[in-house]
Each structure stands twice: as structure tokens, then as C-alpha cells.
Simulated scan of single mutants.
Amino acid sequence: MLQFLVRRLIVAILVAATVMTLAFILTRLSGDLAISIAGPNATQADVEAVRKAYGLDRPLTVQFFDWVGRAATGDLGESYFFKTKVSTLIGERMPITITLGLTGLVIALLVSLPLGILAAVRENTALDRVVQMVALVGQAMPSFWLGLILMITLGLQLGWLPISGTGSWQHFVMPGIVLAFSAIPALTRLTRAGMIQAMGSDYIRTARAKGLSRASILLKHALRNAAIPVVAIAAVQLGFMLGGSIVIEQVFALHGVGFLAWESIGKNDFPVVQSVVLVLAVIYVALTMLADLMNAVLDPRLRGP
């Protein structure tokens, strides 16, 4: 188990280092940062003053390793636009993004588990095909389009839910539904496959021979085993949702980390942009590691020799 943990930790560190490198390079490829900060009407002297003030006159390798060294200690630099520490900005916005991601994950599990069970129980029937079609449509549907449809119907026409802001839990329902649609197809198919496999197992036949009710066999025996990989994959799906919140937060005006990234891109606030990318990537890597550990605990064969 220790070797498994070490291997996963090394992979996580390499992924984080790769993300840091790509985030740094891509922000520099977008143009001269000094010109972006100084503005289009700045003189050459102003641009050179900005370049020197922010350390942009140093070699790129020096800038990169300086950022990496400070990021390793929790110092993500200072925002060019907000004039405050980037770590403070992200810390203030992160609760909204985490709440949105967890809301989407809960909705996805509440929908995908029953659909997967129904599809497995009615395997190769019309109901099974309908469930798979719903999963396919959900995977293909653009999130921003679904968000706009929900805003028009549930928000404007019916008035059931607020369409923007973060004042109460109702504000997270519609964006949570939109985020959930990205995870429901994978979770539904995984639940269906796990239930089909579990229903054909020897212990299920034994449970039937004992005269247990159908509900007891499905929920207490089959689902308990089929849900193991679903729970593990749910951690990975949460990482996907946090990363995908950038578009959703913009659509619903939720001032989380995703909205912060969107603002920073428009204002050329590159320290914030590359830090948001790094933080979301680290969270995703951590959740992936958690999923791997859960799978290893539940299935010792995955630990390797």
C-alpha cells in the first residue's frame, strides 16, 4: 500500500508541475504582459516602467522559478487589477465554487443512481434504451445552452428560482442542475454496468434462494457493491465540475473562482489567471488521488505488487 501511495503522489506532483508550466507559458504566449498592464494608450516609457516594476524584464526562466518557489509557500503573488493578494481573492471566492460543485454532484447522484438501477433491472428493454438515450443527450448538451433554457423557463416564465446571484440556496439549484448534466451520463452508465454485473453474481442467486424480497436484493446487496466504483468516480466528477464552473458561474453571475478567472482574463490580470488554473488543477489531482485510494482500499488488486 505504501508503494501505491508513493507512486500516486509522484504522479500528482508531476501533473501539478506540468500544469504550472503550461499556465505560465500560455499567459506569456498571449502577448507582452507589460503592454497589457500599461494599457493601449501607454507610452514606451510607461511600458518599460511597468515591465521593471513587475519584474517582467527578467529572463522567463527566472520569472518562472520565482513564481514556482513562491507558489510552493502559498504566495501566489498580487493581482494587477484588484491590488490584493491572489491567495486572498481565491480564498474569498472558493466557498461559492465548492458549494456549486457539491450541489451539482449531489443532484447528479440523486438522478444517475435511480436511472442506472432502472436500466439494469430492465436490461435490453425500451426503458433501458430510453435511459441510455437520456444519458447520451445529457452528455452532448452544451452547458451554457441548458443554463439559458433553465433561466428562461424556471426563472423568468415560472418564477420558481432566482436566475443570478448567491443570496440563498435557491441560487445554486439551476447552476447545480446544469453542472450535474455533465456527470449524470457517466455515473448512470457506471451504475447500470455495476448493477448488471452484481445481479449475475453468486451471492445474488444465494439471496434469491433464501427468499429475500426483490427490493432487499437490489438495494441491500446489489447496489451496495455496484455503488463502490460510482462513489470513487464521483470524486473525479467533482473535480470536473469545479473546472467546468468557469462557464456556469459566468452564465448565472455567481462570483466564485470561475467568475474570478473570467474577470481576470478580460482585465489581463495574469497572476490571477495562472493561479486559478493551478489551484483548480491541484484540487482535481487531489480528488483523483482520493478516488485511486478509495479504489485501492476496496480492491487490493489495484495496488500492484
Rank of each mutant, 00 (worst) to 15 (best):
M294D: 00
A222N: 10
L22M: 13
A261L: 15
K52Y: 04
V134H: 03
V19T: 10
A209D: 04
F252N: 04
L212R: 15
Y54A: 04
V15R: 01
L29V: 13
G69P: 07
G91P: 09
R208P: 02
A120C: 12
S36T: 11
H171P: 00
Q237T: 02
A17T: 05
L146V: 12
P185N: 03
A183S: 14
R214A: 10
A16L: 14
R129W: 12
G39R: 09
K267Y: 10
R205T: 09
R224I: 06
Y284I: 07
G104A: 05
R129N: 15
A291N: 02
A226E: 13
F144A: 11
L127A: 14
D269G: 03
I10Y: 08
I163N: 03
L278M: 13
Q197H: 13
T43K: 08
V19I: 15
Q170A: 15
G147E: 05
W262R: 02
I233S: 11
A72W: 08
T27K: 03
A16D: 02
R224K: 15
S275L: 11
I10H: 00
L22E: 00
H221K: 07
N124Y: 14
A42T: 08
S30I: 13
R208S: 09
G194L: 05
L278H: 01
A120S: 12
L254Q: 15
V86F: 06
N295Y: 08
V279N: 06
L29N: 03
M141W: 10
R303I: 08
I246G: 01
G159I: 06
A16E: 02
A72Q: 09
L154V: 03
Q132G: 13
Q170L: 14
I265R: 05
V47H: 03
A119V: 08
K210W: 06
G77K: 05
V68T: 06
I149Q: 07
L89I: 07
V173E: 09
Q250Y: 10
L287F: 11
P59A: 07
V131Y: 13
D128N: 12
I163L: 09
V134N: 01
V47T: 05
W262F: 14
L136I: 15
S245R: 02
A207W: 08
S79V: 11
G304T: 09
L26D: 00
D299E: 12
L136Q: 12
T188Q: 09
A215I: 09
S213C: 00
L287K: 08
I233D: 12
